[in-house]
Structure formats: structure tokens, C-alpha cells
Design a protein around this nucleic acid. Structure first.
Lengths: 337, 337
DNA sequence: AAACATTAGGTAAGCGCTTACCTAATGAGG
DNA sequence: CCTCATTAGGTAAGCGCTTACCTAATGTTT
């Protein structure tokens, strides 16, 4: 069996209280005794039983992370950063993937609570504010990353989606495009990006309308399907802003189906700057969410809240446009003809 | 505060023992009492405190997963499957990324032990058998996925890497290639794949030699660098088998640098069939590890071991060649000239 | 109807740890 | 040399739960 505090106490010839005080760095113990006990702990390879510690009201040093899909590169990169910062700070992470299903969100939150995690980090997803606000009623610290609920007071790290949509669109606008379509899902962040997109269009005085429909999923096929519809329509498009890299790749594929060269005949900007954007051919121009910073920040905020620091904060990071080779100055159609 | 078993007992007018027996489906309780207690539990929204349960020697229903890098698509896809199957079976997963560092492996294993996980799943990595065999000394169930230690008796799910290397190479051979180079890292699985590669070359009687060096990392740049060296060398190559998709993409990029068309002038087969292979242009011909099956199998094996089923098993899955568009029949150089 | 088996439920110890409170020993102040 | 702080360490209760063992009240058997 694993050694317990009793084994250490007996071996060191002291009481368990003394051992406990040493473990917890409480005072009132002489250097001599302390060193001796420490030595015995080493010898026995003693490690406190976290369950027992947690039972007495202390923390479990574990944090739950609830996200839509761990297999999605954006979330796995984010999870990795959160994990790293968590470990630095002494916390382990339990990950749950919800597939954007409300019932799973509820189920996993319940599960994490019953595991006595010290806090829960919610990443994106969670269209339903009720889930959140119910959760907030309890004393359990909760924070949100990669998504912003403007109306809820909760530790948050997110990017400015509006600005992301704005800079993506502006980039295309400055390249001379006017027929710029957008592919987005019906979720908060995407809607914000669309607002940025419309704003940019307005600011540049371009009046482009196309028959917009929300994408239902975040994958390549959906992107292809959506882009194909737009390309086939009356209005057409010479550029796309896609609300994530997978959709962007779908759009590129739709363009290629039609024999377009990317970026010469069709420009596409993605979103998220996942490894896929980097690796794709052509490498994607994309709006980069600073995943590393987000992960670190949210972990720091969360741990601060666990530690009892009360002020809630919202950290809005600014997205960055990474210009690669999927976008290009628009060659005027007239010249071609 | 969260309600405890005492609250439920008092509210239902029974003793805590009765409540406990109901929770654990032990007999000796009348339907009437049982239903009443169940009702009270609902009302109070009671959930047993897992820490307390674990303290009395029962399981924590959590499993540690130690893998090299959660941000790597292969591992995040695998982790997702493991997570899903784990949740189905009632287990939560704690993930730790080691970056292939032995010290982190040790550290995280220790951490997971102190968290009282019911079992640990080791995914790939772990070049050092000693880490494993030391771990096996303890009663804690340990299993390995995506890697095989032939000499150690331990629950294992892996693919037949030798065969994977063999079919990748054979595919290229049958397309008429003879100058087939391989890009691999110095880890067990890659070495096995190389064995398969050499075997295939032998079986087809081709005698191609190039100056082989191990890749030091698994990323696109490294792949590019390795491929460039080979392409620039005296011997050259018309095809590559790369030991993962990222390296494969690197090789393709090296080819393109030289003005090669893929697959016309250079064929490349990857390994792992991650989302990147699917999404890349051209889509990668790659050896597919059945990630879903691996995840499910390893979880099942692990849970069986927790449940006390003793027979250890090694499940070797067969890899599958997914032919896409990064490989092509070799057009004879003579014709070109 | 006596003797016993069954059934339903309760009592209390113990899992490994923290902590409020207690005690003994040492040293300082007068 | 006595009193009182101070310091080093110990005692024991309690965190929420499980479980071996016990008791009381039924039902069965002859």
C-alpha cells in the first residue's frame, strides 16, 4: 500500500499533526524535526492522498475544461496551452467534449462538479446563456474562453470577433475585391464577425449583396457546399471570408472545382490560424486568435478566482491578420476578357 | 453547501447506512424506503462526494492519459475517442502532454498517481522502457496505445507498424517507383515502419540506397529539410514515404520548391490519416491508423483491467492505405527527355 | 405455539488528512 | 527563584462515505 501520513509519523517518531504541518508549511516546527520528517518522506516515497486532503475542505487542484470538440485543431491547441499553464500552476485538467450539444454541456458540468474540481473553464460553444447563469449561482468559479457573453459578469478571455471580421474583410477590400461573401455559422462569435464584415463593407462604401445562409457545421464539405452555392448564384463572388479555417478550405475547394486558381481568381481568408492554415497549399491568409495567450490568460484568471481574488475581468485580445497566399489583389475581369 | 448523505438520511428519516446501500445498489432495502430516499435525493439534488467515496477504497472513476502532445492532430483525435469511450463507461480523463520528454513522463505519472486515478493510459512516446516497467511494479493498471513494447506484458493496442511501412512502400513500388526514400524519426514505431519499408524494397528486388538520417522533430519544416537534402543529393528520389502526415507535407513542399508537380513528378505517402491529410491539396495518400478503434479498444481493455479481469491482451490493428492524390504512377524519365 | 430463518434497517469504525485547541518545556523578566 | 510568554509538538474531532456487524420485527416450519 501507499504510505500514509501515519507511516511517515511513526517512522520519524513524531505525530501526524507534525507531519501535516510540515506538508502545509505551517510554522511551529523546528528545523531539525522538519528536515528529519522531510527525509523520511523521501525515503518512503510519500505523497499525500489528494482525496483525503480534498475531503477536509481543501482544493483538489484540478480544473474542468468543457469544450465543443477536442479533435478540432483550434480547441486541441487551446486545450494544450491551458493544460501547460495549468500544470505550471499546479493544476490538472479534465477535458470534456460536448459536440455543441446542450445536454452534454449540462451533463459534463454536473460530472465535473461531482468530481470536486476547483473551477470550470468553458470554451466556446454554450449558445444557451441559461446553462451559464445557472452555473454561476453556485460558488464554483467558472470562466469562459474564446467566447464572450457581454451580459454576464464572469471571467472571460476572448478575441474581438467584430474586429476580426472587420480586418479580414478590409484586407480583401484593400486588395480591390468588392464581391466578398462570408461563410459563417449561427453562433455568437460568427455573428460578431459578420457584423465586422458588414461594417467594413459599409465603411468602404461597397454595396454587395448575396443570398446569405448560415453554415450548419464547421467542416470542409460544408464550406465547399456553401461556397459553391454562392459561386453558382447570380451575384457570384471573387473573395470569401470564412469564419474558420476548415470552412475556408472548403471554399477554396469549391473554387477549384470551378477551375479557379487560388488566389488569382479567388481569394479566401480563414479564421483561427490553426496548423491547417499554415500547412495548407496555398497557406491560408487567416485571422489569428492568439491561442497561446488565451490559454495562459484564462488559466491565470481562473486560478486567481480560485484563490479568492474577487474582481472578475474580461480580457479581450486583438486578433491579428496573418497574410499568406490564399488572397491576392483582384485582377480586373475586364482585362481578362 | 452541497447536501451530504446525512442531509438525505435526515430528510428521508433513515440512517446514512440505508442511503449508502441504496446508492450502491446493495440489497436489504424495501422498495418503499428506496423510492422515498431516491425521491429525497432528487429533491435535494444530492450527488455523492467522489472524494469521500474514493477515500474508502473505491474507485475515483478517472483515468490518466499521458501523450506526447495534445496539439498534434493524431493525438487529439485519439484523445477524443478515448474520452468518448471513457465517458460512456463512466470515467473521466485527465490529459498530460509530455513533449516526448522523459522527465515530464515521470512527473506526470507521479502526478496522476497522487490524484488516485484508477488507471493510466500511455500513448506513444515513452522510448524508455524503464519508465514503463517501473510503473508496472505497482498495482495501478497501465496500458499502452499507439505503441508496442513487444517485451513487456501489458495491455496494448497498436497498429502493425511494420505492415504500415510495408504497404506504403509497396504502393509506391507498384506505381513503378524505385527511388523511394523514407523520412522517419528515431522512435520505435518509425523504426518498425522502416523495417517494413526495407522489406518491401527487398521483396520487389529494388536496390535503392540513399544517405539516411533521422528526422529530429515531427513537423512540416523538418520534413521539408529532410526531403530537400535527399532531393538535392546524388541519388535523388521520385517518391517518399513519410512517417507522419506533417513530414509528408514537408516533403511535398520540398518538391514544390524544386518546381515539381505533385504527384506527377514526385509521389509522397504519409502516415496517420489525420484531418490534415484529408484536407490538404492534393489530399494525401496515407497509411491510416484506425484511431477510433484504437481509442475504444484501449479504453475497454483498461476498464477491464480495473474491473480485475486479469488476462492482459495485445490488440494489433491492421493499418489501411488510403489512396488519395499525392501519389501517382511514375512517368518514365526517358519519355520526358 | 416454540424455534428458527429472513428481512429491513441501524451502529460505529475507519479511510487519510487538517486544524482548533491543548500541554510541556524553555527562556525572559522581575 | 518564581511567574508568564513563547515555542514545539501532540490530541482528537471531523470531512463524507462504506461496510462489517448487530438488532428487531416479521414470516416459516413443525
Amino acid at each position: 500500500m501507499r504510505p500514509t501520513i501515519y507511516d511517515v509519523a511513526k517512522e520519524a517518531g513524531v505525530s501526524i499533526a507534525t507531519v501535516s504541518k510540515i506538508i502545509n508549511h505551517k510554522g511551529g516546527i523546528s528545523e531539525r524535526t522538519k528536515n528529519n520528517v522531510l527525509r523520511v518522506m523521501k525515503e518512503l516515497n510519500y505523497h499525500p492522498n489528494i482525496m483525503a486532503t480534498a475531503l477536509t475542505g481543501k482544493n483538489t487542484n484540478s480544473i474542468g475544461l468543457v469544450l465543443p470538440d477536442l479533435a478540432n485543431p483550434f480547441f486541441s491547441e487551446l486545450a494544450r496551452k491551458i493544460e501547460d499553464r495549468g500544470h505550471e500552476l499546479g493544476y490538472s485538467i479534465m477535458i470534456c467534449s460536448t459536440d455543441y450539444k446542450k445536454e452534454k454541456e449540462l451533463k459534463y458540468i454536473q460530472l465535473l462538479k461531482s468530481k470536486s474540481v476547483d473551477a470550470i473553464i468553458l470554451a466556446s460553444g454554450f449558445e444557451d446563456e441559461e446553462v451559464i447563469s445557472r452555473l454561476l449561482k453556485e460558488k464554483l468559479p467558472v470562466s469562459i474562453v474564446a467566447k464572450n457573453f457581454p451580459s454576464i459578469s464572469i471571467n472571460t478571455v476572448a478575441i474581438d470577433d467584430f474586429q476580426g471580421g472587420y480586418i479580414a474583410t478590409t484586407h480583401l477590400l484593400e486588395l480591390g475585391h468588392t464581391k466578398i461573401a462570408i461563410i459563417a455559422r449561427d453562433v455568437y462569435s460568427n455573428r460578431e464577425r459578420m457584423r465586422g464584415y458588414y461594417q467594413a463593407l459599409m465603411d468602404y462604401g461597397v454595396d454587395y449583396k448575396f443570398e446569405f445562409r448560415f453554415a450548419t457545421e464547421s467542416n470542409v464539405e460544408t464550406g465547399t457546399r456553401m461556397a459553391r452555392e454562392i459561386l453558382d448564384s447570380e451575384t457570384g463572388a471573387t473573395a470569401f471570408v470564412a469564419c474558420n479555417d476548415l470552412l475556408a478550405i472548403g471554399a477554396i475547394q469549391a473554387g477549384r472545382e470551378k477551375g479557379f486558381n487560388i488566389p488569382n481568381d479567388l481569394s479566401v481568408v480563414g479564421f483561427d490560424n490553426t496548423i491547417i492554415a499554415e500547412v495548407y497549399d496555398p497557406p491560408l491568409t487567416t485571422v489569428s486568435q492568439p491561442i497561446g495567450d488565451m490559454g495562459k490568460e484564462i488559466m491565470d484568471l481562473t486560478v486567481a478566482e480560485i484563490a479568492g481574488e474577487k474582481g472578475k475581468r474580461k480580457v479581450i485580445l486583438v486578433p491579428d491578420l496573418i497574410v499568406r497566399r490564399s488572397t491576392r489583389i483582384r485582377v480586373d475581369e475586364m482585362i481578362d476578357e
